[in-house]
Design a protein around this nucleic acid. Structure first.
Lengths: 191, 191
DNA sequence: CCAATTTTTGACCTCTAGTTCAAGAAAAAC
DNA sequence: GTTTTTCTTGAACTAGAGGTCAAAAATTGG
């Protein structure tokens, strides 16, 4: 009943996510969001309450999509090292392919809002911990499959790889693809 | 001649650097800068021209101090691995010791201004490249001293370590010290 | 068609960021 | 002690951020 929405909230959140990703939280004004989503400012506030709430949804979507992509890459056939290499290569390729590199929304958020927004920090922690979990699982599977040495500490290795990913996506802002590829190879010699 | 300044520009830049570091570029208003430096807004503009110019000086100072600290840590007696470990440990300790972790000003800047400010990106690149250079030098010295295997690619290793540092300083925002220490150990097994 | 309900639209409001400027204050030069 | 120069102070200005609201529009139920 009532007048129907003339946009799909999920699509709007996805578009908002792109805008926040590219320009940061503070760097994205309500007017920018209206333009990015194609929805009037008033409607946005009606539908989402506030800029911060919309950002929250965008960040959650980011985490969800990220998890799916990560899982998809790691589940392809191959050894643990091959799949993890492919995943990291995909990430830096992605970062370097756009007009201007924008890093990782989660990392950007940690840095931009970290000091002032507990909730944002929790969301970011959820996202990274989930990625760490997926990496750890994949390494353990590699151990069962026999392509990863049994003495490797899968969780420590996973945390280390997460750290490498975060680093790469910041470094993608200032450094060229070949340097980033070299970093990936060096990081992967450890297991 | 003329009325003398009643503040020391270097001190003001140092205080401004702290403010930018803690709150980001956009997050630090002229009023904040006036409070942080103890100088009237008008005087700040008279002395530095604009917020952006003051930020430029702050970023340069950050790079300069950073280089000195890095060099000092790496030059202490010990093997290359020991000194690099001590240096990384110092950084994460520093990041985790404040009331709220603030990451690395250079990395923060790359992410916040990367897309829109070429000059800022160049400054950040200078800072990271200098750190990479110092790390590479130290590893080569380790090779001469015999505490690093000669087949290690010093430059690749240095770039990898820089990446690890960047990652750590972002991860410091969301993760605890023990996890970070574990990441350092894992990163150092490579050479 | 009328009522009830939900969205849209765009004007409007307040607050702050970032900056400028005119006036006064503090020094050196003469 | 006046002039010249440079610095300080605080008021003032503009633009835009973030958000609110009243009125109109689109739907379903009766």
């Amino acid at each position: 009943m009532g007048r129907p929405k003339n946009f799909e909230p999920d699509v709007a959140v996805a578009r908002a996510m792109e805008a926040f990703w590219t320009n940061g939280y503070a760097g994205t004004s309500p007017a920018d969001l209206a333009e990015a989503t194609g929805i009037g400012k008033g409607s946005l506030y009606h539908a989402f309450g506030s800029k911060r709430e919309l950002f929250g949804k965008a960040l959650d979507l980011y985490g969800q999509v990220g998890s799916e992509v990560t899982a998809a890459y790691l589940d392809e056939p191959g050894t643990a090292k091959e799949r993890i290499r492919a995943y990291l290569a995909f990430l830096v390729e992605l970062d370097c392919s756009g007009p201007a590199p924008r890093g990782c929304l989660a990392a950007n958020t940690a840095l931009e809002l970290g000091g002032r927004d507990e909730e944002a920090l929790r969301a970011v922690t959820r996202i990274t911990d989930e990625t760490i979990r997926l990496l750890g699982e994949r390494i353990r599977r590699g151990q069962r499959d026999g392509d990863v040495a049994p003495e490797v500490d899968a969780d420590a290795q996973a945390r280390f790889l997460m750290n490498t990913i975060v680093g790469l996506r910041v470094m993608a802002t200032t450094h060229e693809l070949p340097a980033l590829r070299g970093i990936i190879e060096t990081a992967l010699t450890g297991f």
